[in-house]
Design a binder for these strands. Structure first.
Lengths: 158, 158
DNA sequence: GCGAGATAGTCTCACTTGCAACTATCTAAG
DNA sequence: CTTAGATAGTTGCAAGTGAGACTATCTCGC
């Protein structure tokens, strides 16, 4: 007579918590700037890194399907929040970067998102947060999830 | 010059980890039994609880939209994994319960899912797992996520 | 008992997303 | 140089999902 209490089942809890937290956060940038999650991921990746990067790189980093990234990129190009230039070395790919407007949006959004993160983590002591982050890291490693952002030169060696 | 490293941003990490873990698990019951996530949630809820419950109750417990649960229920009824009876007290709702076949499936699936959970958590020491579960609980509380399964009588008092 | 508002469940619609096919381009082997 | 296979990015298509309308039923106040 095996039983499984969904409320004690970590995969279910992680899925639910992840979805809930994501929804809470995405309200922030959807309401303010009309960005959806994939669009935000593109902005976040380009904003964090200084060099321009390819759509493929963003897809790998954020573990988002390339077609989803492609659509997000198209939308952001139309809004002139990012720009792209052909890569002379490899004409299949484009180098993407934030425009001035995109950068301004990024700078404006970041503090607000970090604040929301702190609200969510607010129920944990500083020590607990550190521990939680550490345990998340172990789980990510275990799932082979970690795809650290690296200079494009390294990534291209894939 | 605020910056945000997606890889250190807990909401992103939670979302990604939750999706990844869920995908790993759902492969298990999709491949073996052709169940999708909402269908599994219905089975899991009915299997864990002994009394029959309403679709609404399952939706609230699992935090899944009622239309999604409705579709899952329809599919499971067609496959005769669950059965429903009209509730004489309230003819708007139906009481749902596993059939013998549904129960057999549940009993077969549970150990397998618990094993997968242990694989995922395998990188943590027993103490770390306990701590992780505790911290998850605090975060859930903070997001007002906890909807503990209760006897129907209590739930109906909503 | 009657009407207003709440609730259970179903259904349609619009939207999102993953998949896979496709084009263009690159790389490597011969 | 040529050709086969890999890769970047786009697009059409199908499946899944949430929002909200809708029907039937219940509840509460009068």
């Amino acid at each position: 007579m095996a039983k499984l209490d969904l409320f004690k089942f970590v995969p279910f809890r992680l899925n639910r918590l992840g979805a809930e937290v994501s929804a809470a956060l995405s309200n922030e940038y959807r309401a303010r700037y009309g960005l959806d999650i994939p669009e935000w991921r593109v902005i976040a990746t380009l904003g964090f890194r200084d060099e321009a990067c390819s759509a493929q790189y963003i897809a790998q980093c954020t573990r988002t399907h390339k077609s989803t990234i492609s659509r997000a990129v198209t939308a952001l190009l139309e809004r002139a929040l990012i720009a792209r230039v052909e890569n002379a070395d490899d004409r299949r790919e484009f180098r993407l970067a934030l425009t001035a407007a995109g950068h301004a949006l990024y700078e404006e959004l970041i503090p607000c998102l970090l604040r929301r993160e702190q609200e969510i983590l607010g129920c944990l002591t500083p020590q607990e947060r550190k521990e939680f982050a550490r345990l998340l890291g172990k789980l990510e490693d275990n799932l082979d999830l970690v795809r650290a952002p690296r200079p494009m030169s390294e990534v291209e060696v894939y």
